[in-house]
Design a binder for these strands. Structure first.
Lengths: 202, 202, 202, 202
DNA sequence: GATGAATGAGTCTTCATTCAT
DNA sequence: CATGAATGAAGACTCATTCAT
């Protein structure tokens, strides 16, 4: 087996276990038993248990940022209207989170309870999504689509919280999995809630 | 020192430590060092480490439910208008969370990463707040204040997520502490976001 | 059992094992089995395995330095002749090393093969004994008892080497243990070798 | 690369590492990294890690014994005087040890701290040098050059200790390296110390 | 009730050695 | 022969919990 594949194998089993049992209740033994590899093999690919976790999160960031930049190229910013733009953003985020329930669980639920670098790595994601929304709102204000008097920081927290919790509630476990249709519908409902208060009617 | 005081002492130190370091990184040693009591004493008041955590969360529920029922008695349901009612609810929740940043941290951030009963105890809170909102929305629909076509379950998740994240962002650490005025303002802004989409204009 | 006694107990068993099996081949398990205590108990008294070793060496230094200062007070420096003075020094050193074969083994044989702080702690002893001799020789030269043209540094190495090796050869294992008489005789023979070349005949 | 060269390559890197970091702190990984060969290659030339060490020591013996027998052929035993003979011996030993600081370090410092066969292999060298001196002294007594009443065993230990420690002190690290002149001078000084007490003046 | 020394099961991590390619 | 990924036994250390005083 190639190095990349094996690293991926370990990450996949670790991800599933972290998602189901949490970081601290997942032992290296669990991972190697599930992956059917030797204990020492893990340490050929990762410095330690922390490193597995952090790698998992880092990969998620990269996917997320790649996804954003890819998706952003698909739309014509000069023609799209603000509501459609927000819908687009919300849908992309939901799609990404829906595509990996375990990672969704890990990223959205583990915060404190993790020490040092682990916590930092998670918080970075939350900060980034917040900033993304802040920037979108600022842009909207400059273009006279978004209400001037909006408290941008708080609104961004509200949207972040709403979005992530919905994702967690609906995608966080494998049983109530959602398909593309559901995500379309969810997006519409989310927009229906936030749009009236955010955008200036024309 | 009386038994009750001693138990409270342990809970206070445990709470501060759990909030700052997380459950798994907080050792019994840390707690007894901070509380300046003997290691064995902890086990005279609590079955084990889990028990301390669960007690902490249970106490929070009791405070929360007591708070709700007290507050509900202060208002005259026959006269209050729906927006004021929602404002009242939101403000109460924010006040409670703001009053104890450490507990806020613990309840809002620790989810997974805690095993078994610990996780359950946290999830119960989230479920309750969700149900509370669901019931309020249903009541609003029956009274023709809330839009019929609202997806109640999702809206409730959105509001829960928005509210809890805002609380965490603004109350979760001691530095950016908020006072009563801030909470009033926050409440107004939150309502300004959600009200237009939820309530039927008259 | 008092803390001091227990610490001493651990040190004694560790010393015997380190002396017989070496540092790296002595496991914490060996120590706790021999001392009939629990594995964790070791870590209540010592930070880690290194700490046990370093404590052992540090205690030896203290004994050695205390011994030197006590012994030095017993002699009248204004009356003693240089050969008797050197005899006195040699005898004291031999007596100390003879009194604890295991420690003798550890201090005299382990050098490299130990990493970091461990090695440093051992080298300190060798440096100190070298300096002691250097100072004695310088004093002898000032008082016109020792030959002016002597290479002090080298002579000190020669004496240190000769002394420590003899101690190791004769005291390093329990079988060929020496008593007071032997030490007297050894001292005389060592002096007989070094005195003619070092001291100025009067 | 030929088999012999490759074996030598491994031994050289192992020697340098053992000398600097000690046996236990030197990993097979260190050796293969430094030698830029594959991990498995080591095991094609050596049974295990111990075997590398023991081979190193055995090679040293062979060099040493070859050196002794070569050097002994250079002198005419019927004409040489005893002091010159001892000088000759001392100089040869110092030269050999000076020629390889790393090996010097390994042989002179690692004693205990090595287990089983490793320790034995080192001790053998020390025993041999001791016996060589013992035999020389006995020969001297038979030829009426050395004092009858000398304690041969102890004197041999004294000389061995003095010699090896001096070698270690002056050759054990690369910084204070000595050249041929220094060794001549050192030899003279060592002889100046021991000769007066050992040899019968004529 | 309070104490804190002692316990030992449980975990991570290391590293010499093997073996299929 | 050379390679280096895989192995897994072994060891250090942690920490919740107990219990004699």
């Amino acid at each position: 087996m190639k190095a990349d594949e094996r690293k991926k194998l370990i990450l996949e089993h670790a991800k599933r276990l972290f998602s189901r049992k949490g970081y601290y209740d997942t032992q290296i033994s669990d991972i190697v038993n599930e992956a059917k590899i030797a204990r020492g093999t893990v340490y050929q690919y990762f410095k330690n248990k922390d490193d597995i976790f952090i790698t998992l999160i880092k990969n998620f960031y990269q996917d997320w940022e790649a996804n954003i930049s890819i998706e952003m190229h698909k739309i014509d910013m000069s023609k799209i209207n603000p509501v459609d733009y927000m819908s687009f953003r919300v849908k992309n985020t939901l799609q990404l989170l829906a595509s990996d329930p375990d990672l969704c669980n890990i990223v959205l639920r583990m915060g404190i309870g993790l020490s040092g670098e682990l916590e930092t790595s998670i918080k970075r994601f939350e900060k980034k999504i917040h900033n993304l929304i802040v920037n979108d709102l600022k842009l909207g204000i400059r273009n006279h689509h978004v209400r001037r008097d909006l408290n941008i920081d708080m609104t961004s927290h509200l949207i972040t919280g709403a979005l992530l919790r919905t994702a967690l509630a609906f995608f966080g476990n494998r049983r109530n999995r959602k398909d593309g249709n559901d995500i379309e519908k969810m997006t519409r409902e989310i927009i229906a809630i936030f749009a009236p208060a955010i955008f200036i009617k024309k």
